[in-house]
Design a protein around this nucleic acid. Structure first.
Lengths: 215, 215
DNA sequence: ACCGAAGCGGAGCAGTTGCTCCGGTAGGGT
DNA sequence: ACCCTACCGGAGCAACTGCTCCGCTTCGGT
């Protein structure tokens, strides 16, 4: 950590999935454990996790943690990148080609995922006012952004998404709904999503799933 | 916290606006200063403020702070109650009697207010998973809840709000939008609000304010 | 003017956090 | 089988947090 020769402006994450050179097997295993533990704890409790707890759950010591990642933030960062990447992959694989249902399903799936990991968006939104260096957000944008853009383009083409809506609008709506999804019962946020989709549709106002019988 | 005799489930908030007995003038002044400082800091940075900083901004010492409020939480609580009360009063005074525009204006005003105080909703939503004792939320519900209920009732009666929407839905939407309003430029969240209102309207899909020219 | 008590302030305590240090351990090329 | 080296682990440091303690000040009734 004292004098790094040169390299890119991104210091950490040399290869999350490609150890490449001859790394010791236990080192690779511990790195993976740390990433999993960090991701799990972020999902459960948000991004203000105790490093000791990460190490404990990963069943490694503090020295190991800080050998693999220069700082807590770098660890969380790497974990988040992995999470966002796998989300984008799963969402992309779930597409059927029918634009409007795909959009709705993508949003519903994203919110379900968010329900299981309340802390994810917290990490994403953390330090938003200051911005400047929120890499979680950048990772999400890089991984999921193109997918949303494609969904929006296709839905525009099918004529069901009102033309004045941008991919940015959809991303924003997703973040907004994602902030409440984990803290209310699922039927509640499904109602909200339904209303939102109605607002997004060219011709709007379809009946809600079930107005008074929640499930 | 050891053994409370009986009393109501709300322990704190003896009298935020009614010192009643013969209180010393400086005490009352300092109490007000603490409330203002706390509210200001919560608005700016959310509910994880340093008590020392509250005391510093209020220009009082730590002893004074803890003389007036038994715990940090109690202080934040009292400050939040005051904030929510004045919000409800202002919003209630702004009503014109025309239901649908009133609802839209109420939401827009709430979001503007939220933009100026990003930390407010953080305090409101904090510890939501555990729930159990989030008094900020209770205060908001008590103060603002009836107002939203009335807005929804009137908008239903006017026939413009789709009948399957409940006051709970509107509250939830407000929270969701409030979570993003402070972190994006105002035109962006106004677009989102517009879409949402379209989704709430019986016959939907009116043109957005300005699709591509943000302001 | 006087005086008792309520009020004031900030140094200090205990707990928690992110991070470092260094003796011991075990991997893997030879 | 050997040994060098990268790696492991957890005790310890410094900074920060919420909160308490206690000597001094100031209010306000007489």
């Amino acid at each position: 950590m004292t004098s790094r020769p040169a390299a890119s402006p991104v210091p950490a994450a040399p290869a999350a999935a490609a150890p490449a050179a001859a790394t010791r097997s236990d080192a690779a295993r511990n790195r993976g454990r740390l990433l999993d533990a960090a991701a799990g704890l972020i999902a459960e409790r948000g991004s203000d996790v105790d490093v000791r707890e990460i190490a404990r759950r990963a069943e490694v010591g503090m020295g190991t943690l800080y050998r693999h990642f220069p700082t807590k933030e770098a660890l969380l960062d790497a974990a988040l990148e992995h999470v966002f990447t796998s989300w984008a992959a799963a969402a992309s694989a779930a597409l059927t080609g029918r634009a409007w249902p795909d959009l709705g399903r993508f949003l519903a799936d994203a919110l379900t995922r968010q329900t299981a990991s309340p802390g994810l968006l917290d990490a994403y939104c953390q330090a938003l006012p200051g911005q400047a260096g929120n890499t979680a957000r950048q990772h999400c944008r890089q991984q999921v952004g193109p997918l949303i853009a494609e969904l929006v383009r296709a839905a525009h083409e099918s004529g069901e998404l009102r033309p004045d809506i941008t991919a940015e609008d959809v991303s924003l709506l997703l973040v907004a709904l994602g902030r409440i999804a984990p803290v209310v019962p699922e039927p509640a946020w499904r109602r909200i999503l339904h209303v939102t989709l109605d607002g997004l549709h060219t011709r709007a106002a379809t009946p809600l799933p079930r107005p008074d019988r929640p499930l």
